[in-house]
């Protein structure tokens, strides 16, 4: 019967159990310190990685001379990635405009049209 289980006894033992020792022990301090290190490192990593991506893409779009060899268009890993895009080379002559307005199919400055109620 479930009500005959020694719940109180288990309860005491389980309450005293802690993965790395009881509260305020060296083990819990170490785990806390490691967690904080991971947290800080991940934030630093986000800053670094994003900065690298943005600089590379800016360089690609602006046709700067000193672009890093690592292309910004290298796709991320994962099922949402589209690897074909990594190999799609945009002709040099189209680079600036295609990057800047993100409208490869239809944009040309002279084609700027009034969409709604313009003259």
């Amino acid at each position: 019967m479930i009500d005959s289980f020694p719940y109180d006894e288990w309860s005491d033992k389980i309450a005293a159990f802690w993965t790395f020792g009881p509260e305020n022990s060296t083990g819990t301090y170490i785990m806390t310190a490691l967690g904080i290190i991971l947290m800080v490192a991940s934030i630093v990593g986000w800053v670094w990685l994003e900065n690298r991506k943005l600089e590379a893409r800016q360089c690609f779009c602006a046709r700067l001379e000193a672009c890093p060899r690592r292309e910004a268009s290298r796709p991320a890993r994962g099922p949402a990635s589209r690897p074909w895009r990594a190999h799609r080379r945009i002709p040099e002559s189209e680079r600036s405009l295609s990057c800047l307005v993100n409208d490869r199919s239809s944009f040309h400055p002279s084609k700027a049209t009034i969409l709604a109620s313009g003259p």
Partner: peptide
């Protein structure tokens, strides 16, 4: 600014 005009998705995720 180049990335802002192109859109952040292309720079961040390349797609």
């Amino acid at each position: 600014p180049e990335v802002e005009l192109e859109g952040l998705d292309m720079a961040e995720f390349q797609q």
